Simulated scan of single mutants.
Amino acid sequence: MQTSRLCKIGIGAPLSGRGAPLGREMMQAAGIAVVEANETSNAAGIRLEAWVLDDAVDPEEGRTIAHRFADDDAVLAIIGHYNSNVTLATAPIYLERSLPLVAPIVSNPKLTESGWTNVFRFTNRDDVTAAAITRYLRDERQKASAIVVETQTVYGSSMSAQFVTAWKAVGGTVINHHQVSEGCEDFVALVNGFSGDADLVFYGGTFEGAPLLKEMRTQRYMQLFAAGDGCWDVGNFLVPAGRSATEGEGVIVLSACPEIGKVAGSSDFAMRYERQFGPITNYAVNSFDATMTVVEAICAAARRGALVRAGVLECLRGINRTGIAYPTPVRWDSRGDNMAAVTALHIVRGGHFHQVASI
């Protein structure tokens, strides 16, 4: 009997530290994809394995595990990393070793603007999502002036800068632009200094969004709270924000994929995920779909007799696959951005995110 060839998919994600819940969900969703793919991949004569390593949201640790992936010839592609700073640090290593990299969640424009020919972004970019939310705020909510609060991280700085650029492009004004440190929880003085003339507060960052919003409502600052997809997160924003998310003008939070049920197949996957790990809280659908896209490229390379990294990369470049994250087929533009990606906008209702627009 012919033995199936082992093909590994490296998965780099934060499994320790503050980002661990997000990394675990990414890992678990990708793992489901590999398990399910193995039920059909034998037709291509291969056996798939997910090899997961913890990058701890640390660029140096990311580089260390990137070399470990790259040194194993059985690793044919990478899913990762969760965070922009780690992914930007590791992409050159993967390029040097001809390893295809598919980033399910990373939104920093530099990922596909740096000339790395092995990189593919599954989600939308910060400049694209910023343009979507600013048009909505101006056209649908008739907002004109904003206070911007930015957490000083790679993601927070990128999302905030892109919002400011897009906001000014549609005629909006920025009254103040504040920077806060990652991990900050005391926003009393900051909110006390907010101008009453602003129509909204835009927050670019992740973990500081909930305490900022709660302080706004405590001080009866009831203007709209708008945020990037760092706050499209049940565990780190929705739950700790509590009723603050529905007080005053509420919130509008963007995401780089539609909510569960808007795309065929996403509800079925969510049920499979929940049976094993509990409810989806973040980008599990993107992680599953990105991994299945890599699986299809590996199987295509096997059928062509080109089951090496360069062969997988060639098949990945030509992918045209209908998944469950987006309504149209996954295809890459010349930079490696996914032309199927969309931006969704959500309010909070009844303790849940509720999609109000898809752009």
Rank of each mutant, 00 (worst) to 15 (best):
247 E>H: 04
90 T>W: 09
247 E>M: 14
195 S>R: 12
87 T>C: 01
134 T>P: 03
321 R>T: 00
94 Y>I: 07
234 V>M: 15
251 V>L: 10
299 C>A: 08
98 S>I: 10
129 T>Q: 13
84 S>F: 07
76 L>H: 09
102 V>H: 05
345 L>D: 05
33 A>Q: 11
70 A>C: 07
10 G>Q: 06
181 S>L: 12
123 T>A: 10
51 W>P: 00
220 R>H: 15
66 A>P: 02
71 D>S: 12
233 D>C: 06
135 R>K: 15
51 W>M: 09
344 A>K: 06
264 A>S: 14
83 N>S: 11
323 G>R: 09
1 M>G: 03
133 I>S: 02
69 F>M: 12
41 S>Y: 10
126 D>W: 00
320 N>P: 00
148 V>P: 03
268 D>Y: 09
339 M>A: 06
221 Y>R: 13
333 D>L: 10
40 T>G: 12
6 L>S: 09
117 T>K: 14
258 P>W: 07
112 T>C: 01
348 V>L: 03
100 P>R: 09
165 T>L: 09
158 S>C: 04
147 I>Y: 04
39 E>C: 02
237 F>E: 01
105 I>W: 08
356 V>C: 07
305 G>F: 14
204 G>M: 13
334 S>T: 09
99 L>H: 01
15 L>F: 04
246 T>Q: 12
351 G>V: 01
351 G>K: 03
297 A>Q: 07
222 M>G: 03
75 V>D: 10
134 T>F: 01
131 A>H: 10
342 V>R: 15
83 N>C: 04
293 T>D: 01
231 C>F: 00
40 T>N: 15
43 A>T: 09
4 S>W: 13
107 S>V: 04
235 G>E: 15
170 V>M: 01
258 P>H: 06
15 L>I: 07
188 V>D: 15
357 A>W: 15
68 R>T: 11
260 I>G: 01
143 K>L: 13
37 A>Q: 09
339 M>G: 00
347 I>Q: 11
262 K>M: 12
206 T>A: 14
343 T>C: 00
325 A>I: 05
329 P>Y: 07
51 W>N: 01
118 N>W: 08
137 L>D: 02
